[in-house]
């Protein structure tokens, strides 16, 4: 098991964001996470990446307990995440953005030249190489989303957490994004957890899907199972439990 989430709950003050979440992710798997806005998906990523501490439960990465560690430590252990609301280093060039990932992250590359080379290769992979020298702030939304992915890839992740990298993209951009993610997965060989609203993407990419509703896991299974799950349909069609 690469990642185990054991009985994890998270409350902000009196508000319960996540309750008794339990699942495990195998090496090389692609896991999808579904749920309405505010269901707690992003909170789950924040817990795994170390931006928040679980109120209860344990998070174990490759046998090592990681909850309570600093985000930078967790990144060094090989967890990378992207942000739904993109967070590029706007004042740096696109290449510098990605190279920063290679210099730190789990690569901890010491040589600037090597890091720039790695960054360049990743920019080719995500199709941003022609923008390498531009300031990151000048990209389009699709460009920002690719840059998020490239930055995360550059850290050399064992586990990659993608938070709605397709939201706001046009259908053809979504297809391109899926292609990029899949080809990169083959090349760099990481385990993937994706949060996505674009159902088509989830169905196409994931081996298993978890559904979170009001902070609780209501279903887990293969995509076609989930599509027919009673609880999921009720949750999505708005029927009360």
């Amino acid at each position: 098991m690469l990642l185990e989430i054991n009985d994890v709950s998270k409350a902000f003050g009196g508000l319960i964001a996540l309750q008794d979440i339990n699942f495990a992710v195998e090496d090389g798997e692609t896991l999808g996470i579904m749920g309405a806005n505010g269901a707690g998906k992003t909170t789950l990523f924040s817990l795994i990446a170390g931006h928040a501490k679980p109120s209860q439960g344990k998070i174990i990465l490759a046998g090592q307990q990681i909850d309570g560690m600093r985000p930078a430590q967790i990144s060094a252990l090989g967890v990378a995440r992207t942000y739904q609301i993109v967070r590029p280093f706007r004042g740096l060039s696109v290449l510098e953005n990605v190279a920063a990932g290679a210099l730190y992250g789990s690569h901890q590359e010491k040589s600037m030249a090597t890091a720039n080379q790695m960054a360049h290769e990743i920019l080719v992979d995500v199709g941003l190489d022609d923008r390498a020298g531009q300031p990151a702030g000048s990209l389009t939304l699709a460009g920002f989303k690719r840059l998020e992915l490239a930055k995360a890839l550059a850290t050399g992740p064992k586990l990659l957490l993608l938070d709605e990298v397709m939201a706001g993209l046009t259908p053809s951009e979504v297809n391109q994004a899926i292609d990029i993610i899949e080809s990169c997965k083959q090349k760099y060989n990481y385990t993937l957890i994706v949060i996505e609203h674009v159902m088509k993407a989830l169905m196409r990419m994931c081996e298993r899907i978890i559904v979170i509703h009001h902070g609780e896991m209501i279903a887990v299974g293969a995509p076609d199972q989930i599509a027919q799950d009673e609880a999921v349909i009720q949750a999505y069609l708005g029927a009360e439990k």
Partner: peptide, 12 residues
């Protein structure tokens, strides 16, 4: 540029 995002990519 963004301290939070920097920590995310492993910058201590």
């Amino acid at each position: 540029e963004d301290e939070w995002a920097a920590e995310t990519i492993g910058v201590p």
